[in-house]
Amino acid sequence: MDIIIPIKQVPETSNVKMDKETGTMIREGVVSVINPLDLYAIETGIQLKEKFGGKVTVCTMGPQSAAKALKEAIAMGCDEGILISDRKFAGADTWATSYTISEAIKQLGSYDLIITGERATDGDTGQVGPGIAAWLGLPLATYVSKISDVTQESIIVERLVEDGYQILQMPLPALLTVVKEVSNPRLPTLRGKKKARAYEIQVMNAADLQLNEACIGLKGSPTRVIKIGYPKVTRSGKIVKASGDTGLNDAVDALLQFLEEKELI
């Protein structure tokens, strides 16, 4: 089973500090990591490979430095890494990004499955996975929480929806976007790290892919950011202390009063 996993490198945001004035994150010194939600896709891909054989190719569109994310994926157990990189790709929105990645995937030969994370934690749109499926005309299952069965020709998955799980059967090749429940990502081993260090990442640029220049980068993006605002997100709410029996009682009474005033009870 040959699997392609498009990933994204994102700023690591879980240990960033907060600006005490505005409540927004301090982005200074933030490092880049594999989008945490892509790790579930990588783990799922590796598990399928371990079960059915084949190879896992991980790819990303980004600057040269995104090669590090690919190497990390290889250290976890992926076999190949493709860096889709060109100055001309800069400023791409989800439409142009999914076009570029799907064109790169066409160059990779045959495959059985494409797996992506649910969305990236920086852009937070979740649009690139479905976009690639649309470009490639592949059957699509989003929010996949479980792979129930895989055969040569088809796959059965459960997808997480608002009030339960929808169970889908679809032919291969197909594209899945997966959620956290699907797997538990492994840590890279020392052997994996050494393999990744020695591995030479293959780079594809706009010319290699013979892309339609009108469809890539900022120029090829239907959407435009026209304004950026920096909202102050702190609220100066009422904070009460519940210490001692009377303090506790008073605090809870004050809360109920607040809820009453706002017509929440």
Partner: peptide, 29 residues
């Protein structure tokens, strides 16, 4: 923790032991 970040975004906050506070809220409601 009175310094918890969550209080910066709260419209109403109670600094206290949740295992005391929540049962009391439940009882009063």
């Amino acid at each position: 923790d009175p310094d918890a970040n969550i209080f910066r975004l709260a419209d109403f906050g109670i600094v206290g032991n949740l295992f005391e506070v929540i049962p009391l809220i439940n009882a009063k409601l």
